[in-house]
Write a protein that binds this DNA or RNA. Sequence first.
RNA 1: GGGGCUGUAGCUCAGUCGGUUUAGAGCGCUGGCCUGUCAAGCCAGAGGUCGCGGGUUCGAGCCCCGUCAGCCCCGCCA
Length: 595
Amino acid sequence: MPEGQTFLKRTAICAELSLEKAGQEVVLNGWINRRRDHGGLIFVDLRDRSGLVQIVFDPEKAEPFAVAEHVRAEFVLAVRGTIRQRPEGTENPEIASGDLEILATEAEILNASETPPFLHTDRTETDELVRLKYRYLDLRSPRLQANLELRHRVAQETRAFLSTEGFWEVETPILFKPTPEGARDYLVPSRVSPGNFYALPQSPQTMKQLLMVAGVEKYFQLARCLRDEDLRADRQPEHTQIDIEMSFVEREDVLQIVERLMVHLFRATLDTELPQPFPRMSHEEALARFGTDKPDLRFGLELVDLTEAMAGSEFKVFSRVAQSGGQIKGLRAPGCANYSRNQLDNLTEFAKAHKAQGLVWIQVQAGPRLESPVAKFLGEAEQKALIERLGATEGDLLLIVADQAAIVAESLDWLRREMARRMGLMQAGDWRPLWVVDFPMFKWDEDGKRWEAEHHPFCMPHPDDLELMKTDPGRVRAQSYDLVLNGTELASGSIRIHRREIQQQVFDLLGITPEEAERRFGFLLKAFEYGAPPHGGIAPGFDRLVMMLAGEENIREVIAFPKTQRAQDLMSGAPAPADPQALRDLHIKLDLPPE
RNA sequence: GGGGCUGUAGCUCAGUCGGUUUAGAGCGCUGGCCUGUCAAGCCAGAGGUCGCGGGUUCGAGCCCCGUCAGCCCCGCCA
């Protein structure tokens, strides 16, 4: 061993091995993936980040053989050996280096391992509880290693692309003030300002707008965003956004840069061409045709409005809903007329689980003749109208919900996706991006009896709708936009208000007093008084993007150390009680609920 | 805060109608045999707070109540 070297250090990695190098000596470092002991001959699959290679330990090489007798799964091993072609008939086409093997001449155990609680080489899928507790072992699996590498590449490609486009990557504070979004903040107490708290940013929203005032013009950041809200399969308390803000731009400029970024990322990572240009749809149209503001365009099954056609129906549910201002809508599932009674009951339960009062199903038989519990209540004209409007033909299953518009939309959105799943219409590798534009600027909060910002209070209203702010706020469109991919919201952004009088109008409508505005974001309003350029931006969700590129259905699979639904880290045990002295330093006394 | 699913060996699971003494299987683990395997094979062995607490019962892994944890969903949020 050379002077100063403390262990048998690698001269190659698995991916570099090839038959062209047969006869050469290499030193490999890695983990024992598997061990096959034939008594007189021991095979070990050595794993490093780049791949696997089979090491052969022959009893004739007594010293390395003695080492191999003691190694077990996940031991860390160093091996010196010669690359050689495998004997004919013993090649392993399953692994990249399957045509060669390493005949060990020297071996050193760099570290032993306890028997791991689970092995990723098992065919079984381990409970996530165990996987999260031993996350560092789970991360050794090819699946998560590939996800980490993909994440790294997406980050690098994003930086390269945006840099080339003239964007500067600027870091913004993690210790900041509450941001204007509506989520709960994570608070950090200040030791030197007793009683005062920082808020961890829900997003760098105000900071990136300040960077526009500061003349940065094109900003981006892979920004960590923290929100103290409940988790979902696609939501973690901390997530990363590709945060983007641009000056002297209109909506079109922002959409173009993100569209090109996405096209670039899909090319660079999946070698896939996204369909261009991305289609666009108003929020209103998305809701009408799909019942959601993030429609999955991989399949049809569109919602059809039947309210007018059914308004005079003898079927009381229909006529009552139509007369009371509700909606009747349906979708057509081609070829599903053969659903059994059991399956139909199941669908009805599904619709009810998603708020619908009930589900009307109609099987379209030859003729076409409609078969359904409600068929006898539907007159000939109504049956004809149903068939025409839904475009029904023999073999179809029609699913109809009658209720308040919001419930019709929600339940049919769920049903539409459920039917697509059952019909196998959600194909992996079929990418259907969509811009949803012209979101409403405000939404009415029934509980608080007040208007709320749909996006955030710095979002610019549509120029044609400025007058409506005074008369009909619910109809004001915002200059905001969402990027939707296969039914997942991938990015959200807007053109911002840069003029004080419009900002004041919005605040007034939202019931934000000048005092409150001053207290919450006076620093931003102040900055706007010193020459704020027209600006706008967007923030694609980095974790969600990587999740989709990886073909994963859960955001945890693309985050190195994710948290559970109760926002805990099962590996470290965070969150944990604070040291009493630390609390005293912060002048904090606990007031915990009983038990 | 609410609804649903799950919880039996280190891991993945089975466990019938509440009743065969000692709760099983595969993988893993330990020991032995084995020179071309690659999910190596063969033989033997160890390994259990049936999530936890209470209840019903002559008897509970199984039934009831509560509770904890993980996941999915609603609310919330992006």
